[in-house]
Write a protein that binds this DNA or RNA. Structure first.
Length: 572
DNA sequence: GCCGTTTTCGGCCCGACTGTTTTCAGTCG
């Protein structure tokens, strides 16, 4: 059983316990454990095999450790099953409707036999809901609006779609007169792979004017709420955006608060509460003297607590608070550390630009090298190269390299790892190349055993240097393959192969927790943009963002090495 | 249910908003 499934059980249990009216702190304990387990870099099933103590996981004590063990060993949990049996099927779905909490859901279920948003809508229209205890006409009508908004608003969208939209908004807002600060917060700033809504924070001499300009932007489809300091809107792609204008002198604590994560903030507040400090979005209050200190910057806020500044990407309550107090947060990788790209296509296969155009674009990024990795013939739809054409391409690249100074095009190929793990290009051809990227493009539904063996076989091939996106997922579209990542990481270390962090916003694969675990085990990671047009080289920043979430320093990333060291790693 | 450089028991993040209420419950972020 995977961590994500274990986490879902505990999340569900928390909901059910809440409906039952259990102790709120018990419920929170289940939620916290679920959240921690979901983001654990290592599978608990493997920890169990290796005899590790679950109680070392923060938020996991005796009871949840035992329950986790039961889940892993039997695939079921007695306590969960009996808890579920106490409630009508589907009641937890009601909790997903905004405005419906643990008190209203049982009320709707027991009084009106409602278990879905559609049924609730109907009951409201028939006037049944307004008559319930502590409800009323206004509450019922608001619920109707919220259900509509929930349908209109799309689910979480990939950061690759959200970020450009937000950057446009930010640049428009920043250019307004009187604006001092303007930045995004929330999961977007922490660079999560998907974002649910957009938070923007700013300060200005005339905040009301800024709000008025904001709601009039063409990208705004609908205004949900608008006041003197805050506006909520729905943007054209079905994304909610909140703009908050605050005082200059408390911008730091507000930005810190709205950047989150929620878990990070709760952990921080709990910790400093014990030391007599009350943390809030307005600043820090010394409880003994009842004096509020304000902070204009996040740096000042963390400094007041004796902490090292924390990059937003790692504020997830996964040990960063303690390390920051010890001033032991490593310097995370940055776009400026990147010396090259290991995954790019040209018009020789399914790319749009010539090799020379791609190389010039890479040189413009300040890179020292770039691998051209067109598809192999296995991928018919992508005009994969035959042996003859690959030989021609190698010759062309040799010629082009004569023209460049201080920049090298690496001859490469993205070869197809067939269903049986074989490579669709003979070894003697691969031996001619600087850099071979192996990737899975078919048979995504193989069993865990088969897909894992398939990828291990590719790793063992002495000519393959990098394995691209092993889980081969597409965010929101295609589920990851069942591959056993732990086995892949160990093989990559053993055979000294790099694993790719694919920077395409629809992939971001490896994902953050995979990166963390791979890094712990000593796997070298290579960021590839998978560019099919020159402009996509700019996608590198998405790879960087996800790598930062995986706590990567330059030493963990192949792209930060000099050309000589890269070639030595490839043993060419 | 978890946790401890004040605690193995007694705490558990903080504040805002809304609507139904006459002082607060419920929900949210």
């Amino acid at each position: 059983m995977k961590n994500s499934e274990i986490a879902r059980v505990f999340h569900d249990m928390a909901d059910l316990l809440e409906l039952k009216g259990e102790n709120i702190f018990k419920i929170r304990a289940y939620r916290r454990a679920a959240q921690v387990i979901e983001h654990l870099p290592k599978e608990m099933a493997i920890m169990l095999e290796q005899g590790e103590d679950f109680q070392k996981i923060p938020g996991v004590g005796d009871a949840i450790a035992k329950k986790s063990t039961e889940l892993i060993k039997t695939g079921k949990l007695e306590a969960y099953e009996s808890l579920k049996a106490e409630f009508p099927e589907g009641i937890t779905r009601l909790l997903e409707i905004p405005g419906i909490g643990p008190k209203t859901a049982p009320l709707l279920s027991s009084e009106l036999k409602i278990t879905s948003a559609a049924q609730l809508e109907e009951a409201i229209q028939e006037g049944k809901v307004a008559d319930l205890f502590r409800m009323g006409d206004k509450t019922a009508q608001n619920l109707l609006h919220k259900i509509e908004a929930m349908r209109r608003k799309d689910q979480r969208i990939p950061i690759g779609q959200a970020l450009p939209i937000v950057e446009d908004i930010l640049s428009s807002l920043s250019s307004l007169p009187g604006v001092k600060n303007m930045t995004s917060a929330g999961s977007l700033r922490r660079f999560r792979e998907t974002v649910g809504d957009i938070d923007i924070m700013g300060t200005a001499d005339n905040p009301e004017n800024v709000i008025n300009e904001f709601v009039a932007f063409p990208v705004v489809k609908e205004i949900i709420a608008k006041g003197p300091t805050k506006a909520s809107v729905i943007l054209a792609p079905g994304l909610q955006a909140d703009l908050r204008m605050v005082e200059h002198d408390s911008f730091g604590s507000l930005l810190q608060y709205f950047t989150g994560s929620k878990q990070h903030n709760i952990a921080l507040r709990t910790k400093y509460q014990k030391k007599g400090l009350k943390l809030s979005e307005y600043g820090i209050t010394d409880v003994a003297h009842d004096r509020l200190e304000k902070f204009a910057t996040e740096e000042a806020f963390y400094k007041r607590l004796g902490m090292q500044y924390l990059p937003p990407e790692i504020r997830e309550d996964q040990g960063e608070i303690e390390l920051s107090e010890e001033h032991a947060i490593p310097r995370l990788i940055d776009l400026r550390d990147i010396k090259g790209d290991f995954h790019a296509h040209s018009d020789w296969s399914d790319g749009n630009n010539t090799i020379e155009e791609m190389a010039l674009a890479a040189k413009n990024e300040g890179y020292k090298y770039m691998a051209i990795t067109d598809h192999s013939k296995g991928l018919g739809i992508a005009h994969g190269l035959t042996e003859e054409r690959l030989k021609e391409q190698v010759r062309e690249i040799r010629g082009l390299n004569q023209k460049f100074k201080g920049f090298r095009i690496l001859s490469g190929m993205e070869v197809d790892i067939r269903a049986d793990g074989s490579i669709d290009m003979p070894d003697h051809m691969l031996a001619e190349l600087d850099c071979v990227v192996g990737a899975v493009h078919s048979s995504f539904n193989q069993s865990e055993e088969r897909v894992t063996r398939r990828i291990l076989k590719a790793i063992e091939n002495p000519h393959v240097d990098i394995i691209a996106h092993p889980p081969s997922r597409l965010i929101g579209e295609r589920e990851p393959t069942a591959v056993d990542m732990e086995a892949v990481f160990k093989a990559a270390v053993k055979y000294k192969k790099a694993l790719e962090i694919n920077a395409m916003p629809s992939r971001l694969d490896l994902k953050d927790i995979h990166i963390q675990r791979a890094r712990e085990l000593g796997v070298m990671l290579a960021i590839g943009t998978d560019s099919h047009i020159a402009a996509q080289l700019k996608l590198m920043r998405f790879g960087i963002g996800i790598a930062r979430r995986g706590w990567c320093e330059p030493k963990h990333i192949l792209n930060c090495l000099s050309l000589e060291k890269v070639l030595a790693f490839f043993k060419r």
